Computed example of a mutant assay.
Amino acid sequence: SHTGGSMNNDDERVSDNSTFTHTLLFYMIGFVASAMVGFGLFKLFQDYFYGEGLNQAFPSLALFIGSLIIGFFISDLILKKIKL
Score class of each variant (00 low, 15 high):
Ile82Thr: 09
Tyr48Asp: 15
Glu52Gln: 09
Gln46Ser: 14
Ser34Met: 00
Gly40His: 04
His2Phe: 13
Leu68His: 11
Ile74Ala: 09
Phe39Ile: 09
Leu84Lys: 06
Gly5Phe: 12
Gly71Ile: 02
Phe45Arg: 06
Lys81Phe: 13
Ile29Lys: 09
Phe64Lys: 00
Pro59Tyr: 01
Phe49Asn: 04
Lys43Tyr: 15
Met7Asn: 14
Leu41Pro: 15
Ser1Cys: 07
Ser34Pro: 01
Asn9Val: 00
Leu54Thr: 10
Pro59Trp: 01
Asn17Tyr: 12
Met36Arg: 03
Met7Gly: 12
Ala33Arg: 00
Leu79Phe: 00
Ser34Tyr: 02
Leu68Gln: 11
Ser15Phe: 14
Asp47Phe: 07
His22Phe: 14
Gly53Tyr: 03
Tyr48Trp: 13
Ser18Gln: 05
Ile29Glu: 12
Asp47Ser: 09
Thr19Gly: 14
Asp10Met: 05
Ala33Val: 01
Val32Lys: 02
Ala57Tyr: 13
Ala35Gly: 15
Ile69Thr: 12
Leu77Asp: 05
Leu84Gln: 04
His2Cys: 09
Val32Gln: 00
Leu68Phe: 10
Phe20Cys: 06
Lys80Leu: 08
Leu84Asn: 05
Ala35Met: 07
Asp10Thr: 04
Gly4His: 14
Leu63Val: 04
Ile82Glu: 11
Phe58Tyr: 13
Tyr48Met: 08
Ile82Lys: 07
Met36Ile: 14
Tyr48Ser: 11
Ser18Glu: 09
Gly66Ala: 01
Lys81Gln: 08
Val32Ile: 13
Phe58His: 10
Leu79Tyr: 02
Phe39Thr: 09
Thr19Ile: 04
Phe31Cys: 03
Asn17Ala: 05
Arg13Ser: 07
Glu52Lys: 06
Arg13Pro: 06
Gly40Ala: 03
Ser75Pro: 00
Gly30Met: 02
Lys83Ala: 05
Asp47Gly: 06
Ile69His: 07
Tyr27Gln: 07
Met28Arg: 07
Ile78His: 02
Phe39His: 08
Phe64Arg: 00
Asp11Pro: 04
Tyr48Glu: 13
Phe72Val: 01
Ala57Asn: 08
Ser75His: 02
Val14Leu: 10
Phe73Tyr: 13
Thr23Val: 11
Ile82Arg: 07
Leu41Trp: 15
Leu44Ile: 07
Ser15Arg: 13
